[in-house]
Simulated scan of single mutants.
Amino acid sequence: MITPPAPRLVATDLDGTLLRSDGTVSARTRTALCAAAAGGAEIVFVTARPPRAIAHIAEQVGHLGTAICVNGAVTYELARERIVHTRPVAAEAATAMAETLRERLPGAGFAVETGIRVIAATGFGPRWDHDHRHVVVPTVDDVLRLAESIAKFFVWSADHQSDPLLEMARAVAAEHGECTHSGGTGLVEISAIGVSKASTLAGYCAERGIAPDEVLAFGDMPNDLDVLGWAGSAYAMANAHPAVLAATRRHAGSNDDDGVARVLERLFT
């Protein structure tokens, strides 16, 4: 039997995928990532988090690899701790999204990720423990006025679960942005048209002459589906969202059972 070549690039989500539930990278996972890199694979973390929220993770993996952050809007080099590319939402599109969603979802809360901080309107519920750069202002109009740039637009509703809210957002705002969610309760994330984890990863790979069938990907949430569908080999975590499990043929162990590491060990050790 001919052994297929090892992947040239490993693309993995962080929360719910590579990270354990306590937010750490296990020793086993760190060793497996280093073995993959030593075996010639590029390591790319594809995450909804902004660069400032992966600093402690970068330290845990020895500043190995590159991070595609904010669902594809920001590309960040871990070794040099610098942003190398951004794909922001246009101000006009953000304004149109805010107007449409405010009309269709009375009582919803809004915020933006600027790449530097989160700016939230009063009434936006979510807070992230790993992120202290969270500013609250009176209205969504103030949010848009103060935003240095808009890497991602958030809509949140206390009255909806994320799956039905995502369908509602897509129905009314799809012409202005790419709607998805990464598991936050009642929270939808909207990127610029054409911006996703997969589109940014595809561009990154094309620049390096890496074909989709040379990419191995891991994920657990709807915002990972495009990457899992694009990569030549893809694994949904055992703890993944039902839609991700249904759409992905291969399943890895859970994030708390070092699922990513177990697959990498078979390929690189």
Rank of each mutant, 00 (worst) to 15 (best):
A158E: 13
R8T: 07
A231S: 06
T12D: 03
T29M: 06
V10W: 05
G65H: 10
S26D: 09
N255V: 09
A198C: 10
S191R: 08
R250C: 12
V10H: 04
A11Q: 07
E167L: 13
V195Q: 13
R145N: 10
H134G: 00
A240F: 08
N223C: 11
R80P: 01
A236S: 12
H176S: 09
S162V: 01
P164W: 04
G229R: 08
L78K: 05
A79P: 02
A158S: 11
S149R: 06
D257S: 12
D226E: 15
D141P: 01
T12N: 08
T29C: 12
D226T: 12
V172K: 11
A90T: 10
L216I: 12
P7C: 11
F45T: 07
G209K: 01
A6G: 08
S157M: 07
G115C: 10
S162I: 03
R262T: 06
I119F: 11
A151Y: 03
T122S: 15
L64C: 06
P5E: 09
V195L: 07
S199A: 14
T17K: 09
T185I: 06
I119D: 00
R30Y: 00
R52T: 09
E77M: 08
A238F: 00
L101Q: 10
V215H: 05
A151L: 04
G23H: 13
D163W: 06
I210D: 09
S196H: 08
A202T: 13
G16P: 00
H176K: 03
V112E: 05
C34H: 15
L245Q: 11
A36I: 09
E207N: 01
I43K: 06
A243C: 08
P88K: 00
A236R: 01
A174T: 14
D159M: 07
P164E: 09
G62W: 03
